[in-house]
Design a binder for these strands. Structure first.
Lengths: 272, 272
DNA sequence: CACCCCACATTGTCTAGTCAATCAGGACCA
DNA sequence: TGGTCCTGATTGACTAGACAATGTGGGGTG
């Protein structure tokens, strides 16, 4: 009971300020079991009722503790079956792959190819819009106020589970009338189409940030609480430094590792 | 009251399944105000009591709604002053900077230099340990079981606020007896010392993932709930592909953007 | 004027209950 | 056998309270 908790606090030898609240103790206890592997991924966590008895606390307090773990992404609640330890399996996301010397796949784009070879079943949904760009996009594409963009929006699935969001923006006047405005998969890649139009990309800037998803992102990715996303923004430039493409990838944090490889430039001294 | 909620649900024209729970409505309402700028960063959110009256709900329900926003990183509670809209300002983190052709700073390492030039006051805490490496590190450094590593652990601060954790691991047998084992700042950079020892790095692999912080990371970075981190792992290789250094950066998500720049390799065809 | 202390408003922790929603599995029936 | 319905266990949403902890600001004191 609550009173008991209060009394214990008063009697304890005051190690380090105040005693940890019950709900934190619960979270710590379960977290330890999970990280130690005592509770394996997919396994069921004891029910609220069982924990309430074990910790001698009310259900609300137990729930508060379980919420901590849910928000940390360690467990998920599946009503009315109970709480389960979350499964994690990440796969690599390689922005550099777009310029690697391998033939493009005839049907799907390169991301898909990489996935299929791993024995998974990828799919995607494409839709195309012509819109006024969000500020961030307008900035990266160096557009003037009022300029329009074509955006190809994709949600990619792996084994029926939403995996990431991929929105690519092109200045409207560049791609007007081309295949890019068509909401179908482009076998040879949208960037190849862009190159055919005279805008070959030779340089790119990648920006990566970690944050919690916005509500609409959470909905599109079917994310529960406690699942951060990695946002990867990629801007492609032509030889004369004109930005012609801006891609926003929203990656489910627990499912991706972003990978880069770098070489020391010839003649560089290095200073770290 | 609760009964009222139930009745409303029964009477409503059943748009799209069930009505949104009160605490979600609260979260949605405040989130909209925040993203619209109606509630500016740093500004105070109405108190629990005020919101309870406004929404005709109990304090527990209001708290549940506020917790959603706390976990999304949109607001922070500062007892007993109230809830405030969180401030966000990011700065760039550029792994590639280590190999750029600029002179190393004489006193601080390059990260610090970049910060000071922006008119902030950086500081760091270094400590050095010799330990058995965690599995992930042992794997990346291709160590044998039982091999030891030297780890230089740093917490970096900006304006007294913890900013990121930077742990760099070196195979013990490579750096034994060198400056690297010394828990002081190395003016010319630890990698330069490594180069002097005959292990110049010419290639690096970067891995980036987004997740919620572990409890000890949260403690070291003084993170509240709802703040994801970006984990940046960097492995450095010598000319003969021997891994000689592994760095783990834990970056507070809301404070960093990781930046890369790439060029299309000469002769590459491009296939996306 | 400066300083200290206390009251107050606010969030943090917790209890003990109610009713709703949902899924699994068993009982029942054709 | 196979489908249908119902029951029970479990989480989701919510109420109405209680006492604890803690900055802030105002009032009193030296």
């Amino acid at each position: 009971m609550w009173g008991e908790q209060g009394r214990l606090a008063a009697m304890s030898p005051r190690i380090e300020e105040s005693p940890r609240p019950v709900y934190q103790q619960l979270a710590d206890s379960l977290r330890a079991k999970i990280t130690a592997g005592e509770l394996a991924p997919g396994e069921q966590v004891p029910t609220e009722k069982a924990l309430a008895e074990e910790f001698g606390a009310s259900r609300a307090t137990i729930r508060q503790g379980l919420m901590v773990l849910v928000n940390e992404g360690l467990i998920v609640a599946s009503r009315p079956r109970g709480y389960f330890v979350r499964r994690h399996e990440r796969c690599y996301f390689r922005p550099q792959a777009e310029w690697e010397e391998q033939p493009a796949s005839p049907e799907m784009d390169r991301w898909m190819t990489e996935q299929t070879t791993l024995g998974r079943t990828p799919s995607q949904r494409i839709n195309v819009e012509i819109i006024q760009p969000p500020d961030r996009v307008a900035d990266r594409l160096a557009l003037n106020p009022g300029d329009l963009v074509v955006v190809r929006r994709r949600v990619r699935y792996l084994n029926e589970e939403p995996f990431n969001i991929n929105d690519t923006f092109y200045p409207f006047e560049l791609v007007q009338g081309s295949e890019i405005v068509n909401p179908a998969d482009i076998a040879r890649g949208a960037s190849e189409v862009l190159a055919e139009l005279g805008y070959e990309q030779v340089r790119a800037i990648d920006e990566i940030e970690a944050r919690m998803p916005l509500p609409d992102e959470a909905a599109r990715l079917e994310l529960g609480v406690g699942m951060p996303v990695a946002v990867h923004r990629n801007t492609g430039f032509t030889r004369d430094d004109k930005p012609v493409r801006h891609t926003v990838n929203v990656l489910v944090g627990s499912k991706h590792v972003i990978l880069f490889e770098r070489r020391k430039p010839q003649g560089a001294t290095g200073n770290e």
